[in-house]
């Protein structure tokens, strides 16, 4: 693709049950800042089915243009989404493509980068416009213990952006922008994968990625039976249950709840870590939380280094007492 005719920022917004995922709306914040500094605009792209409401959301958070590819074939994320995004990039020639670093986002980005031979960075936690007009993308490495600042030499360039890294703007009550392109179908090319079965293991309505409150349990909960206390505390707080790898591997809770390097990256307003030591592979997934409470009986546990409040104590004593107190507060 040629350098000169690419401009603007394309923000790919993933949807779930017709609503935009938070990270998609969060990305509009830096996208708008950079686009206005460069005198270009922001195009929101949505690929899925039943996207009208999500398109309105994108508009209210400031997208200048909207492209939806709305088709029953695209209801669930698959390889077809990558084929469609590749077509859109070739057709609309953005300078920068931002994609939420969700599981699907991290799947689609390298596939499209590979198809088009574009430079790509992963899990961007901050970005700014350099003096030379290039965007500097900051990405974590070594379990988040080191941050790297990167620029990308190709145009277009692709970046996946970590949820919780940017704050959503204030939604405005606006009509859909004039430039809305609705495509019903696109060529998929040669499709090599088929989804045979989809299983949901998370019962809560809220995704961990979008949760405001997460109560997580670790090996220190001791047993599947005791782990129920974590669920109970999450319930009274209207939050979602998280876990370290240990309880997942012991079968106390399903894998979809795992937080960390081989699980999910989360950034809730409140994160309560119960019986969790604070291994870097876990911490990298939750250190972006606004307020961290840690309960651990070992006063030297590394989790206390990142906690706003560290409670040195036995989870079997602290959690039930907290549940009682919170019930009183909420009554």
């Amino acid at each position: 693709m040629s350098l000169t005719d690419c401009k603007g920022i394309m923000v790919v917004i993933e949807t779930a049950d017709g609503a935009a995922k938070s990270v998609g709306l969060e990305m509009l914040t830096p996208a708008k800042e950079i686009a206005s500094a460069k005198g270009t605009d922001v195009t929101a792209v949505m690929i899925g089915e039943g996207l009208e409401d999500a398109a309105k959301q994108a508009a209210s958070y400031g997208a200048d243009k909207i492209i939806t590819v709305d088709n029953n074939d695209l209801k669930a994320y698959s390889e077809k989404h990558a084929a469609v995004l590749k077509e859109l990039i070739e057709k609309y020639k953005p300078e920068t493509v931002l994609i939420g670093a969700t599981q699907n986002g991290k799947d689609i980005a390298p596939i499209v980068a590979g198809k088009l031979g574009l430079g790509c960075v992963t899990d961007v936690v901050s970005m700014k416009l350099g003096d030379d007009g290039k965007i500097v993308f900051t990405c974590p490495m070594y379990s988040g213990n080191i941050l790297s600042d990167n620029v990308i030499d190709t145009v277009p360039q692709i970046a996946t952006v970590r949820g919780g890294s940017f704050k959503k703007g204030e939604p405005k009550d606006v009509e859909l922008p004039e430039e809305v392109v609705i495509a019903e179908s696109m060529p998929y090319g040669d499709i090599k994968t088929t989804i045979k079965e989809t299983v949901k293991e998370i019962s809560e309505a809220v995704n961990l990625e979008d949760a405001q409150v997460i109560v997580s349990g670790g090996r220190g909960m001791g047993s599947a039976e005791n782990f129920k206390l974590v669920e109970e505390l999450a319930n009274v707080l209207g939050g979602v249950v998280g876990a370290t790898r240990a309880p997942v591997e012991d079968g106390w809770i399903s894998r979809a709840h795992q937080i960390g390097q081989s699980g999910k990256i989360v950034a809730p307003k409140l994160y309560i870590a119960c019986g969790i030591s604070g291994a870097t592979q876990h911490v990298t997934g939750m250190v972006g939380s606004d307020y961290i409470v840690a309960i651990n009986k070992d006063e030297d546990a590394p989790i206390f280094d990142i906690a706003n409040v560290g409670i040195v104590g036995n989870v079997m004593q602290v959690i039930p007492a907290m549940i009682e107190e919170i019930k009183k507060l909420k009554a």
Binding site: T102, Q103, N104, K192, T193, T194, I195, K196, E197, T198, V199, K200, E201, I202, N207, L208, E209, S254, R255, A256, K264
Partner: peptide, 13 residues
């Protein structure tokens, strides 16, 4: 394949 909510079984050639 792990997904955000659980898993998919994907057939690939």
């Amino acid at each position: 394949q792990e997904t955000e909510e659980g898993y998919n079984t994907i057939e690939v050639a």
